[in-house]
């Protein structure tokens, strides 16, 4: 009973918050609602027994992505209020598309329910999700895992290629040069006559 109540609560909050993401006037509020959506989705995952995915969702999406969004929203000088003007006037057509999609999904879902049920993943008893991941991530999926690493590397190269500029006249910090300073190079002994001063 409690599970059912919490499912409906979380699902309702997730959908309502997702709606508020597009409806909110203030972009910062939008991001806050987005975070709420992620949290509700994480709660749904926990209800399904996928606690590792839930934690991952909170850590990656709330911890990194949403905070990044906040930074971008606050740093960019975009007049979001003007941009969002009349945004909700698209609601009827958006709702229409959403309803069509929903009906299609229902149809597919109904066909699935009508057929026999299948277990997607055979769960071994006594193995936590995290252990199950660990058992396959670096063994069966090692090749794919490495390839995914290369995908991230390519994204990193891309970001650097497209944005890094070497500007002249900018003083850079060179840690090796700093560390290599000795007493001789960094200090000069000047013998000053009394009453003369330097220069």
């Amino acid at each position: 009973m409690l599970t059912v109540i919490s499912f409906y609560l979380l699902a309702f909050v997730a959908v309502a918050a997702a709606f508020m993401v597009v409806a909110a006037r203030n972009p910062v509020h939008s991001v806050m609602y987005l975070i709420l959506t992620f949290f509700s989705a994480a709660g749904l995952f926990i209800l399904m027994g996928a606690e590792f995915l839930a934690l991952l969702l909170v850590m990656v999406y709330v911890g990194a992505v949403a905070v990044l969004f906040l930074f971008v929203v606050m740093m960019l000088d975009v007049d979001f209020v003007e941009m969002k003007q009349g945004f909700l006037s698209y609601l009827p057509i958006g709702a229409l598309v959403a309803i069509v999609l929903l009906l299609e999904m229902l149809m597919v879902g109904a066909a699935y329910v009508a057929g026999e049920t299948k277990t997607v993943v055979v769960r071994e008893t006594g193995v936590s999700n995290l252990e199950a991941f660990g058992q396959v991530l670096y063994t069966d999926y090692a090749g794919i895992f490495e390839a995914a690493g290369f995908v991230l590397l390519v994204a990193m190269i891309g970001a650097i290629v497209l944005t890094l500029r070497d500007r002249d006249g900018v003083r850079k910090q060179d840690a090796t040069a700093q560390m290599a300073r000795t007493k001789e190079t960094g200090m000069e002994m000047v013998d000053i006559e009394p009453g003369q001063g330097i220069g």
């Binding site: 390839a147 995908v151 390519v154 994204a155 891309g158 290629v161």
Partner: peptide
């Protein structure tokens, strides 16, 4: 993964 690696390089 293959498609994504190829596409990311192409976007750049």
């Amino acid at each position: 993964i293959g498609i994504e690696m190829q596409s990311l390089a192409l976007y750049v």
